[in-house]
């Protein structure tokens, strides 16, 4: 362990290409234990790809990804082992439709981690209670709303007791009134000290939850820093332009008679 042991995740010179197109260019950063890092940037900038390569869903071209000081990018450690430490939640929830809420959650702990069903179930119930869905444990995903499905998906990842959680635009396909319930769960996780890497387009949430914000554009981290500074006064022109997309001028006060 040559790395600073307070860093759970250390990424060095990460390169990823899709065919001719370079998606991530020489990306390097660290995430400390308990830190919440929010990654923002325009669509196609590579932020989802970044998350996906941390649990092996994308093939890495070069560079290293150290999880707890161990390089997982070399392929020496089987990805199923790595993925037990890395919880991931997707945009489209992706619960298993043929299984109940409880069966969805127990898949990892029982089938993969070989834990005792009773013990895993007790933990799952505790987590479901925390996200307010204990009464839905025997429901099928089709009987749940989008927000409920996403909260179950979060519990499914949490029940593996991961060291870091990855959130890939988890509210992007939710109705606006359901976004809040999912964010509340994530804020609660942050409060409990979970290490999280979050990709989102919700700037207000990013500001509230982040310890650090990364602005990625065209495969490089253009700017990073504490959210207060970043959102109040972004240094780079590209970040300024990007943040302006989320601002609306008040039309009413400027209306003039035509």
């Amino acid at each position: 362990m040559s790395e600073d042991s307070s860093n759970i995740l250390v990424i060095k010179n990460l390169n990823i290409s899709f065919g001719e197109r370079k998606v991530l260019k020489d990306l390097s950063f660290e995430v400390a234990k308990g830190e919440v890092v929010v990654v923002i940037g325009p669509s196609g900038c590579g932020k989802s790809t970044l998350l996906r390569c941390i649990n092996g869903l994308e093939t890495i071209e070069s560079g290293s990804i150290l999880l707890d000081g161990v390089n997982i990018a070399e392929g020496r450690i089987p990805w199923p082992l790595v993925r037990q430490k890395v919880g991931m939640v997707f945009q489209s929830y992706d619960l298993f439709p043929h299984k109940t809420v409880m069966e969805n959650i127990l898949m990892g702990p029982v089938k993969v981690q070989k834990r005792k069903p009773a013990e895993a179930r007790a933990e799952a119930e505790l987590l479901l209670e925390r996200v307010g869905l204990l009464d839905r444990r025997d429901s099928h995903p089709r009987q749940l709303s989008g927000g409920q499905k996403q909260r179950v998906a979060i519990v499914r990842a949490l029940c593996m007791n991961p060291e870091i959680m990855l959130f890939d635009e988890v509210t992007a396909s939710l109705d606006p009134e359901m976004v809040r319930e999912v964010f509340d769960v994530m804020l609660e996780l942050a409060r409990r000290g979970m290490t999280m890497l979050i990709v989102t387009h919700e700037m207000a949430f990013a500001r509230a939850v982040a310890d650090r914000v990364f602005f990625i554009d065209e495969g490089v981290i253009v700017e990073s820093g504490p959210p207060e500074a970043f959102f109040a006064a972004p240094r780079s022109l590209r970040a300024q332009k990007f943040l302006n997309n989320f601002k609306f001028e008040d039309v009413k006060t400027k209306k003039t008679s035509l």
């Binding site: 869903l57 199923p80 997707f90 298993f96 898949m107 990892g108 089938k111 990842a157």
Partner: peptide
């Protein structure tokens, strides 16, 4: 079966064979 089903199966640590079998 959507590609995401396979990915979320992998994400909870299942092997390729387990994903095919159980998901």
């Amino acid at each position: 079966i959507p590609r995401h089903q396979k990915e979320s199966g992998l994400a909870v640590g299942l092997t390729d064979l387990q994903v095919q079998l159980h998901i």
